[in-house]
């Protein structure tokens, strides 16, 4: 059989055969049937030595330990909250993880701290095979987000929104004089000093969503931020 050649950073689609060489090892988002290595998802190929993997261009957010993400309270329970963080499962925030300060859980009503519809910035502290997903607000960086709104982006496009060493997001923040929090789930919390500036941020996020895989994003961004 003829050898299949694949370049680095090539667009590969779901189910596509990437290699039929037994010497190649299937990496992340790929699998092997017989001698074939097949892509599980549409994405860009990455070949490092003998390992071939896919960097997905789209897909759901899969939580990882220590991820810092924006979320929304969807249910108050007796000793904690169900939080939507855009994962295939709801996360649980136990009351004991609400803050660094001690909370007397026996005498505190969960509703007095957080309620349905509240926005939070949290850290993933557990994600297991059985899809046990826990988050925490312990730490200075994490809190209830009283002001601002949430805007969403495809999780795979988050790196483009952040840019090299944070260049893109710094550009947006500076131009709009605003605060932003972005996590790997693609949920963006934003708060501008004016509503106009917030609309500008929303526009810039939509620009990344539409142009993430194209060239010249920074120039386009500078234009709309003017």
């Amino acid at each position: 059989m003829e050898k299949i050649k694949l370049e680095n950073k090539e667009i590969v689609v779901t189910g596509q055969i990437m290699s039929n060489d037994m010497g190649i090892v299937p990496g992340k988002n790929t699998f092997r049937i017989g001698e074939k290595i097949i892509a599980k998802q549409t994405g860009l190929s990455e070949i490092k030595g003998v390992v071939m993997k896919i960097i997905p261009l789209t897909g759901t957010y899969t939580p990882e330990y220590n991820d810092e993400v924006v979320g929304k309270i969807i249910e108050t329970q007796s000793s904690g909250w169900q939080v939507d963080i855009g994962a295939p499962h709801d996360a649980y925030l136990p009351m004991t993880e609400y803050s660094l300060a001690y909370i007397d859980t026996r005498r505190t009503d969960a509703m007095d701290l957080l309620k349905k519809g509240d926005m939070v910035f949290v850290r993933v502290i557990k994600y297991t095979q059985t899809k046990n997903l826990l988050v925490s607000m312990k730490g200075r960086r994490y809190s209830k987000l009283k002001e601002g709104i949430i805007k969403k982006i495809t999780p795979q496009k988050v790196p483009r929104l952040i840019g090299k060493r944070g260049s893109m997001i710094t550009l947006i923040k500076k131009a709009t004089n605003s605060n932003m929090l972005v996590g790997p789930n693609g949920w963006i919390w934003l708060k501008g000093n004016t509503v106009e500036n917030e609309l500008k941020i929303v526009k810039s996020i939509e620009l990344v969503e539409a142009n993430a895989h194209k060239q010249g994003l920074t120039e386009k961004m500078e234009k709309i931020l003017k």
């Binding site: 519809g117 509240d118 926005m119 709104i149 949430i150 509503v195 609309l199 526009k203």
Partner: peptide, 24 residues
């Protein structure tokens, strides 16, 4: 303030300036 409340506040603030949340 919940997300919904914040959005409502913005819609009203924009409306007071004759604008809509989607720019029209």
């Amino acid at each position: 303030m919940t997300l919904e409340n914040n959005i409502k506040k913005r819609i009203i603030e924009l409306a007071s300036e004759g604008k809509r949340i989607d720019g029209r």
